[in-house]
Simulated assay, not measured.
Amino acid sequence: MRKNMTSKKQIKDTFFDLIKIDSVSGEETKVAFYIKRYLKRIGVDASQDKFGNVIARLDGYGEFLALCAHMDTVEPGRGIEPVVKNDIVRSKGETILGADDKASITEILEAVKYLKIKNIKHRPIELIFTCGEEKYFAGSINLNYKKIRSKDVIVLDHSMPPGAIIMKSPFIYNFEIKIKGKSAHAGDVPEKGVNAIKVTGDAISELKIGRINKTTTLNIGEIKGGIGINTVPEEVYIKGEVRAYNQDSALRQIDLVSKAFKKSSRKHKARYYFKSSLKCPGYRHLRTNSLIKEIVLVNKELGINSKFIDNAASDANIFNKKGLNSVVISKGGSNPHSIRESIKITHMQKMISFLVEICT
């Protein structure tokens, strides 16, 4: 069993290179170039599809396995300055760190480098580095699947110590609402107006916002309306989302939202426009899943405790919808999408060991 085969310095150098490259969603060109150049130096050809996703393949023996990480980060993710103390890497505190998901990219690159340098016999491996994951999985939705031969895909995109395996992920529905009232002077003739904010408030008061039950949430995240304090607001725009592990539960909440705004609009004689869309398909795995069983076995061999958890969405949601068998695992790290984000280099080291073992 190969443990800690890559030095901490080597890991840190690659990781720091990556996180110093700004790559907020939609601006992944430079990090894609870095990945392709890195792979070329170790004898692996990589290409990009029309959307910008980076795809590479290593020939081998046996069944194909794909490893996936996303190249984009959230804001504030520009000008990141990493600092390391006592094995823990953080940003200076004004930005995210970008371990989500550049720690995963580092782990994949270093694992592949180790296999190539040591000339270790391995299974056929495909590498997928996606764009726009943080923008509802734009890269995996637009990926050129004709280039992918693997049936199994491991997605490294969960911020926990090594060993976490994601068993299910929710369906996510977005909704947008427009309330059209009638403007009027708020001081002279307010009775001639139809206050769109009032319509919105009455509708929201009819809804349960936040956690609906153990498996379902409803959030209204954006409300925009009004042009001045002396004018009855004519229009309000509302955006929100529903997440549920059961699709029927998600659709029930969407229906409740629609009915609440429709009822309030009728009451106040306003017009109402509503649309919703499935932004992310959910999935559920069983522990008998062949890839999960393989992951658990490798974890056991490396002394990593497997932990089965539920999680938010990732590229795996799209892969599973496309008919692939995709499992998300943790790559180390904590507090993603925040300026408190951090990761231990030893956890990255352990994940490199994991990737080498599962590929051989």
Rank of each mutant, 00 (worst) to 15 (best):
G282C: 03
V236K: 00
P82W: 12
A244H: 10
N195Y: 01
V24D: 11
T346K: 12
A250D: 03
A103I: 08
H70C: 11
I11F: 10
R340L: 09
N230P: 09
K118S: 13
V54W: 00
E222F: 07
D255H: 08
K8F: 12
N86H: 14
S150N: 02
K331A: 10
H337T: 04
G181P: 08
N174I: 02
K307D: 14
K239V: 00
G323E: 09
S205P: 10
V189R: 13
Y145V: 11
K118E: 15
A270K: 02
V44F: 04
K279W: 12
E222H: 02
V155I: 09
K224E: 13
E75G: 14
T217C: 07
S23H: 11
K168T: 04
A103G: 07
G282F: 02
K192W: 09
H285F: 13
I166A: 02
I204G: 11
G226Y: 01
F308V: 12
K214N: 14
T73K: 11
Q349C: 02
L18I: 01
S183F: 00
I125W: 04
I179S: 02
I120D: 08
A196M: 07
I358H: 01
T360V: 06
T288F: 07
C131A: 14
Q349K: 10
G282Q: 02
L115T: 05
K3Y: 11
E75K: 15
F33V: 13
P161T: 04
S140V: 09
L18A: 02
H158K: 10
L355V: 06
G26F: 08
S353M: 00
S326V: 09
G225N: 06
L127N: 07
I154P: 04
S342A: 08
V199E: 04
N53W: 01
F171M: 01
V236D: 01
G43V: 01
G210R: 01
T346F: 02
K344Q: 10
T360H: 14
P161H: 05
I295V: 02
I117G: 02
M160T: 08
K269D: 08
N305R: 15
G43Q: 01
I304A: 06
F171D: 07
Y136V: 12
L127A: 07
A203T: 01
K118Q: 13
D101G: 03
Y136G: 10
I105F: 03
D188V: 14
E191S: 14
E301G: 03
D310L: 14
E241K: 01
S91L: 11
S290F: 05
K40Y: 12
H185P: 08
I197D: 05
I339F: 03
R211Y: 09
Q48Y: 04
A196Y: 08
F15E: 05
D310M: 13
E191G: 14
D22P: 12
D152V: 09
I55Q: 01
D49V: 11
E234V: 04
P190K: 09
F51R: 13
A66S: 04
V74E: 10
Y283W: 13
I343K: 05
E75F: 15
I295D: 06
E75P: 15
E81D: 12
K344S: 14
S150K: 00
K36L: 13
V296I: 11
